[in-house]
Design a protein around this nucleic acid. Structure first.
Lengths: 347, 347
DNA sequence: ATGAAAGCGCTAACAT
DNA sequence: ATGTTAGCGCTTTCAT
């Protein structure tokens, strides 16, 4: 059997409650008593039983992070950063993969794991505005990532989707590209990143006084991965669609597209320039490197954890909405020079 | 306050213990009683308090997965698969990132989270054989990934490192390459994947009656990532080392190397062929696609969870060691044709 | 500044 | 086949 508070208390000649007070940083303890307790803890190698504490307090110190799939690089990087940020707050994270399946996304909200966690950071893919109701009468703190299920009464951490997409498109227009594919919109999706990014794409064209050729607005399935990017661009090429640039709605799509373009014997960026979105690590070592949008990749996980922790501790007021500054990251896929690594390391 | 077993019991006109029996699948219950209980559960929307059960049983149904960093694609894919496999067993996973830092790797073993988990799947990077002792007197089930801290009394899930590395090298030799860089060994590392893979590299040369030029055995730091691969190969090129192939000890190194080679204006595979190790998703859409070793990427996570769950449930005997079959995955980086995606989708 | 008693919700052990 | 009792290890009253 493990060492308990009673054991420590006996050893220190105090009551269990005093040990509890010491462990929890209760201030009004005679220094001498505290020292005796700390010594006893040390000697016995006492470690608190988190389960017992949770049963009593109703809080576990665990938060959930629900996302589509960990194997998708964007979510892997997000999860790594969320875990690190949670650690700073003394919180533990459990990751739940819903695969973008609607039934699983809903189950996450009410499933058994919600008893294990103090709150949830939630990145849905299939839910829409209609589902906002499901999110409003939850009995635990919730922070939403993205804005598929936007509701003003829920904490959100999101991106400047439209402005960033506009900047990405303007970057291509400035480089003289005039037939820019928008890769990623989905006709059945009225909410979420896709329509917002498409709006940015359109805004950039309008501002430049250019019309958007509908042929260049190319829907994909919701799974924005390499395979989808490659397959979709492959079909455009098969169909003889004329384009000189691709703005893909995320980096995986962009990298898949870039792969396919080169497999077909075209050059990036000479024949087709490519811009992505997310600034995942992979794009920094692709061939060529990928021009992309950094939507605030370090800020988003940190803020998500902060918002949730504040709710959890009951120190938050009304719902908050955070959309960090974004940044265009130039790469070889739009003609920025791909510097040699050894040289870069020196400089 | 949430609905408890007592509430359900009252409603069903039975004792709490009977509710417990129903919930836990105890067989000897009058069907009619069971139905009444299930109905009461349904009506009240009862969900079990996992914390209370854990306190009573001493088991949480949570397992730990300790790895260097989630942002490293190999570990992200591993973690995703471990979570999925754990789900199948009704287990929840918490991921702990130790960053390959020795102090954190040791802390994982004895930290507070070990009270929260029933066992640990452990993938160390900094520990060595000397640390085996730290792993032997742990009071919880442990499954080791890799063989940095090999010990016959601990469950291991590992790879056929030497045989697979030999196959990778032979693949390059068969293609007529004669100056193959071994990218990844570390002179200070006597255990783990690196020396085993180096042995495979040497064996392939010996079997072909070829000597290994020591200049081609190129150490890297332990962080086998893109940047390391690019930087190290960059230095070889700067130094004018003559080579016509690279066998990188993982895919990230390989992709970083491939990037740098192409940045310098050389062609892959014409000037330099490249082979990696791990078969991460990224290599399937790189330019060119990456030839690599699949060390059993689907088997490893599944088996790790199975071994741990068996120990946890106390149904395991002596220590087991699992090293699944591996497979060479040909890609464009050694001259296999990179098929167009759209065509591939049809065929 | 510290202690005693009670109980969080569940299940093990025993009883019937 | 079901009920009773006790207690997992902690924190929350309330008392001193």
């Amino acid at each position: 059997m493990a060492v308990t508070m009673r054991d420590v208390a006996r050893r220190a000649g105090v009551s269990a409650k005093t040990v509890s007070n010491v462990v929890n940083g209760y201030p009004y303890i005679k220094p001498e008593t505290r020292d005796r307790v700390l010594a006893a803890i040390e000697e016995l190698g006492y470690q608190m039983n988190a389960t017992a504490r949770s049963l009593r307090t109703g809080r576990t110190g665990i938060i959930g992070l629900a996302l589509p799939e960990l194997r998708v690089p964007y979510f892997a990087e997000l999860a790594g950063a969320v875990i690190a940020a949670a650690e700073e707050c003394g919180l533990t994270v459990i990751i739940e993969q819903h695969g973008g399946r609607r039934d699983l996304e809903l189950e996450v909200l009410t499933g058994a794991r919600r008893h294990l966690t103090d709150g949830l950071i939630y990145s849905p893919l299939a839910l829409g505005t209609d589902d906002a109701a499901s999110l409003l009468d939850l009995s635990y703190p919730l922070v939403l990532l993205g804005e598929r299920v936007f509701h003003p009464d829920i904490d959100h951490v999101t991106m400047q989707n439209t402005a960033a997409a506009r900047a990405a498109t303007e970057h291509l227009l400035r480089a003289g590209r005039r037939r820019i594919v928008a890769l990623g919109p989905n006709p059945t999706q009225d909410v979420g990143s896709a329509p917002l990014r498409l709006t940015g794409y359109r805004e950039a064209h309008e501002a430049a006084g250019l019309a958007v050729d509908p042929v260049l607005v190319v829907p994909t399935i919701r799974t924005w991965d390499h395979a989808t990017g490659a397959r979709t661009v492959g079909r455009l090429l098969d169909d003889g669609v004329d384009f000189d640039a691709v703005f893909a709605f995320n980096d995986s799509l962009a990298l898949g597209a870039m792969h396919e373009i080169q497999v077909r014997g075209l050059r990036v960026p000479d024949d087709v320039a490519v811009v992505g979105f997310d600034a995942i690590d992979e794009g920094r070592y692709s061939n060529p490197t990928l021009t992309t949008i950094d939507p605030g990749r370090t800020v988003i996980p940190r803020e998500a954890v902060r918002l949730l922790d504040e709710r959890r501790r009951g120190v938050a007021g009304g719902a908050r909405r955070i959309a960090p500054d974004f940044q265009l990251v130039p790469g070889g896929s739009t003609g920025a020079p791909d510097r040699a690594a050894a040289t870069a390391a020196v400089g």
